[in-house]
C-alpha cells in the first residue's frame, strides 16, 4: 500500500468535509470487506504491521468492539485505552496523551471524546491517521456510514429517499453524521422530536423539521430512531419517559398507520419501551442487527482506505484470499 495521502485524506473526522465520491468510495469498499466476516478464517493481511490505538475517553462498548474486530480482521496490532486506565485522570492534556502515544510510533488513533471538535483537534496535532469514533455532539462518521450502507443494502439506493431522524437530535453526533452524509448522497432528510431536543435552524442545513412524529412517518421511507438518554429527562428536556414514548415512541400502531413500509434503524443501545417498542425492535421492518454487522465492514473499509488502500486493491485482496 502506498504511503501517500489516502483517498480520504489523513483522517476521518466527519462526513461534512467529505465529498459525495469519497463517501461512495467508502461504502463500495465496505462491500468488499463484508464477506471477510462471514468466512471461517476472518482475517485479511492488509493492515499487517500497522499499530492502532483505540483511545476512548468516554465509555463505549459496541463502537469500541466493532472497531477492534475491524482492526483484528485486517491484521492490525491494537491497543485499547479507556479513560479509567489513562493518565487523563492525572491531569495530562489531550495533546500530551496523543504525543506520548505518537512517541511509541503508532500509525492510527481511533478516538472517542466527550467534547465536540476533539477529533479534529487531535488530527491537527499528530501525524498519525485519526478516526473519529464520536466527538461530543458533533459527528460519529462511521455510524453515519454504516447507517447509509444498511439503507443502501435494503432499498438499493440513497438518492431520493426520505430519511427521518427521530428523537434527541440536539445531543446526537449520530444525527449530524447522518444528516451530512445523506444530504451529500441525494437523500431527503428530516428530523422529528420535541422542539427541546432539536437544534435551531435545521432548515438552513436543508433538513425538514416535523414537530409531530406522525407527520414524519407519513413522509418517511426510512427512520433512524435515536436513543433517549435518561439524563435528558433529568435535565428537563422531556417531562417523562412515559410521555416521550406516548408522543414520540416508534410503536407498531404508528408504523401500521403509515402509508408505506418504513425501514427502521436504531444506532443502539436501545431503550425498549421509550423511543422504540419491542414489537418494532424485533419486528419485520427493522435492520438493527444488520447495522451492527455492517459496522465492522464499514470500519474495515475506513481503516483500509486511510492506510492508503484503494477499492480496486480491496477487490483483489478478496479474490486472492478466497482462492
Amino acid at each position: 500500500m502506498s504511503e501517500s495521502v489516502s483517498l480520504l485524506g489523513k483522517d476521518l473526522i466527519g462526513l461534512e468535509p467529505l465529498s459525495r465520491d469519497q463517501i461512495v468510495t467508502i461504502l463500495d469498499t465496505a462491500e468488499h470487506f463484508k464477506d471477510v466476516s462471514e468466512r471461517k478464517v476472518k482475517k485479511v493481511p492488509v493492515l499487517r504491521g500497522k499499530t492502532i490505538v483505540n483511545l476512548f475517553f468516554e465509555a463505549s462498548t459496541r463502537t469500541r468492539i466493532s472497531f477492534e474486530f475491524a482492526q483484528k480482521r485486517l491484521s492490525a496490532d491494537t491497543v485499547n485505552i479507556a479513560t479509567s486506565a489513562s493518565s487523563v485522570v492525572k491531569g495530562e492534556t489531550l495533546v500530551d496523551t496523543a504525543r506520548n502515544l505518537e512517541a511509541m510510533r503508532i500509525d492510527m488513533v481511533v478516538m472517542r471524546h466527550a467534547s465536540s471538535g476533539a477529533a479534529g483537534f487531535l488530527a491537527e496535532r499528530i501525524p498519525s491517521n485519526v478516526v473519529n469514533a464520536g466527538d461530543g455532539r458533533h459527528e460519529h462518521p462511521t455510524q453515519g456510514l454504516l447507517d447509509m450502507l444498511t439503507i443502501r443494502d435494503h432499498l438499493g439506493r440513497l438518492e431520493g429517499l426520505n430519511v427521518c431522524i427521530v428523537g434527541d437530535v440536539l445531543h446526537s453526533r449520530v444525527a449530524r453524521s447522518n444528516i451530512f452524509g445523506l444530504l451529500k448522497l441525494g437523500a431527503h432528510v428530516a428530523v422529528s422530536g420535541p422542539k427541546t431536543l432539536l437544534p435551531v435552524r435545521m432548515e438552513e442545513l436543508g433538513v425538514q423539521v416535523f414537530p409531530r412524529v406522525e407527520e414524519a412517518l407519513e413522509w418517511a421511507d426510512v427512520i433512524n430512531v435515536l436513543r433517549l438518554q435518561l439524563e435528558r429527562m433529568k435535565a428537563g428536556y422531556v417531562p417523562s419517559l412515559r410521555e416521550y414514548n406516548r408522543f414520540y415512541g416508534i410503536t407498531r400502531a404508528r408504523l401500521d398507520a403509515a402509508p408505506r413500509d418504513i425501514l427502521v434503524l436504531h444506532p443502539g443501545p436501545m431503550n425498549r419501551g421509550v423511543e422504540i417498542d419491542s414489537d418494532v425492535a424485533d419486528g419485520p421492518n427493522q435492520v438493527i442487527l444488520k447495522q451492527v454487522t455492517n459496522g465492522v465492514a464499514v470500519r474495515m473499509a475506513v481503516l483500509y482506505l486511510l492506510a492508503g488502500g484503494t477499492p480496486e486493491i480491496a477487490h483483489t485482496v478478496r479474490e486472492v484470499e478466497e482462492t
Binding site: 453526533r173 449530524r176 435551531v200
Partner: peptide, 9 residues
C-alpha cells in the same frame, strides 16, 4: 445559531 447546530456545540 446555524454554526452551533452544525458543530454540535
Amino acid at each position: 445559531g446555524l454554526v452551533s447546530s452544525r458543530l454540535g456545540l
